[in-house]
C-alpha cells in the first residue's frame, strides 16, 4: 500500500513535467510543420516559472471568491483526473497490485470538472469576452458528451462478454479490444478511436475547436482576465488534462506493455529496469496520441464557428461513434453464429 502511495506521488510530480513537456513537444512539432524554428521544448515550464513571479490582477467587477477559487478547483480536479486514469495502469505496468480499479463512469464525470471550474471562473470574471468564451465552452462540453459516453459504453459492452468487470479500467489491460474481437469489432474499434481522437482537440480547446479561447475573436476568451499565479494554475490544469486525456485514449485502445508486445525484459545487474522502460513506452504512446489528435489536426485546419462545431459533434462524430458501437454490438453474435 505504501508503494502505491509512492507511485501516486510520483505520478503527480512527474505528471507536471510530463504534461508541460507534452505541450512543449506539441509546439515544437507544430513549428516544424509550419517551417518555423519554434520555442524550446521546455518553454511551457519557463512560462509557468515566469507567471509565478508575475502580479496577479483580480478585476474589480469579478466575484472574487469564485474567480480566485475556480483555478484551484480546476487544478485539483486535473490532478485527480490524472491520478484516477493512470494510477491503476501505472501500477499494472510496473507490476504492482493496484487498490484502485478505475471506474469508466467516474472518469466521464471527472473529465467535466476542470472545464466546469474554468467556466465558472470565466463567468465570475465579469468580462464580456470571458462570458462568450464560457458559453462556447459549455456548447463544446455538451456536444462532446455524447461521443465520449458512446465510446465508453461500447467498450464496456465489449468487456461485458468476458468474466471481467465491464466498467473497470483494469479489465481492459487484459481484455483488449483488438485481441478479443472479430472483424466487425475491429472496424468498430477503429471508428471509436477516430471519434476519441476528434474529441481530444475539443476537450483541449485547440484549433479547429478552440472557440472558447479563440485569440483573434475573443482574445483568449475564458482566460482573458486571468494573470499571474492564477493563469499558471490554469496552464498547469491544461497540461494535466492533456496528459490524462491522451493517457485515457492510450489505455482504452493501446494498453499493451512493451514486455508483453516484444517479450523482452531489461535489467542492469540484479536490478530490473523493466518498469522504467514500461513508463517510457507509456509516455511515448501518449506523445504519439497527442501529436496525432492535437498537433496534426490543429496544423491542417482553420477554426470552425461554434454552430459548425455543434453540428460536427452532434452529427458527424456522434454518428461515427454510434456506428462503431453498433459494429461492436454485432460482433460477438457473429462469432456465435
Amino acid at each position: 500500500m505504501d508503494e502505491v502511495i509512492g507511485v501516486a506521488i510520483a505520478i503527480v510530480v512527474a505528471g507536471v513535467f510530463a504534461g508541460l513537456f507534452l505541450k512543449g513537444i506539441d509546439r515544437k512539432l507544430a513549428a516544424f510543420m509550419q517551417s518555423r524554428i519554434g520555442p524550446p521544448i521546455a518553454q511551457p515550464i519557463y512560462d509557468i516559472l515566469k507567471l509565478k513571479q508575475k502580479q496577479t490582477i483580480i478585476p474589480s467587477t469579478s466575484v472574487r471568491w469564485l474567480f480566485t477559487g475556480a483555478p484551484l478547483v480546476a487544478l485539483t480536479s486535473g490532478i485527480v483526473l490524472l491520478l484516477y486514469i493512470s494510477l491503476s495502469y501505472v501500477c499494472y505496468i510496473i507490476g504492482l497490485q493496484s487498490p484502485v480499479q478505475g471506474d469508466l463512469i467516474v472518469i466521464m464525470y471527472l473529465i467535466l470538472i476542470p472545464s466546469i471550474a474554468i467556466i465558472s471562473g470565466a463567468f465570475a470574471s465579469g468580462s464580456p469576452y470571458a462570458s462568450i468564451g464560457a458559453q462556447r465552452e459549455m456548447v463544446i462540453l455538451m456536444s462532446t458528451e455524447l461521443p465520449i459516453a458512446v465510446v465508453v459504453l461500447s467498450i464496456a459492452w465489449h468487456v461485458a462478454d468476458s468474466m471481467y468487470n465491464p466498467f473497470a479500467l483494469q479489465s481492459l489491460f487484459e481484455y483488449t479490444l483488438w485481441h478479443h474481437a472479430g472483424a466487425f469489432g475491429i472496424l468498430g474499434g477503429i471508428l471509436l478511436f477516430l471519434a476519441m481522437i476528434l474529441v481530444l482537440p475539443a476537450e483541449m480547446s485547440k484549433v479547429p475547436f478552440d472557440q472558447a479561447e479563440a485569440e483573434t475573436e475573443i482574445a483568449e476568451g475564458v482566460m482573458v482576465e486571468y494573470s499571474g499565479k492564477l493563469l499558471a494554475f490554469l496552464l498547469l490544469t491544461d497540461a494535466f488534462k492533456a496528459l490524462s486525456l491522451s493517457a485515457l485514449i492510450v489505455i482504452l485502445f493501446f494498453p499493451y506493455t512493451f514486455t508483453g508486445l516484444f517479450g523482452l525484459s531489461f535489467s542492469i545487474g540484479s536490478y530490473s529496469i523493466t518498469p522504467l522502460i514500461e513508463i517510457i513506452f507509456f509516455i511515448g504512446k501518449v506523445v504519439i496520441v497527442y501529436s496525432i489528435g492535437v498537433t496534426v489536426i490543429r496544423v491542417i485546419m482553420a477554426r470552425l464557428k461554434i454552430s459548425q462545431v455543434a453540428k460536427v459533434f452532434l452529427f458527424a462524430v456522434s454518428a461515427i461513434s454510434i456506428i462503431g458501437m453498433v459494429l461492436i454490438m454485432l460482433d460477438p453474435k457473429m462469432k456465435m453464429i
Binding site: Q34, S35, V207, P208, D210, E215, T216, M301
Partner: peptide, 16 residues
C-alpha cells in the same frame, strides 16, 4: 486572413 480564422499554417506559409 488565415490567422484571423485560426489557420496559422497558411499564415506562416504565405508570409514565408
Amino acid at each position: 486572413a488565415a490567422h484571423e480564422i485560426g489557420f496559422d499554417t497558411l499564415f506562416m506559409y504565405t508570409w514565408n
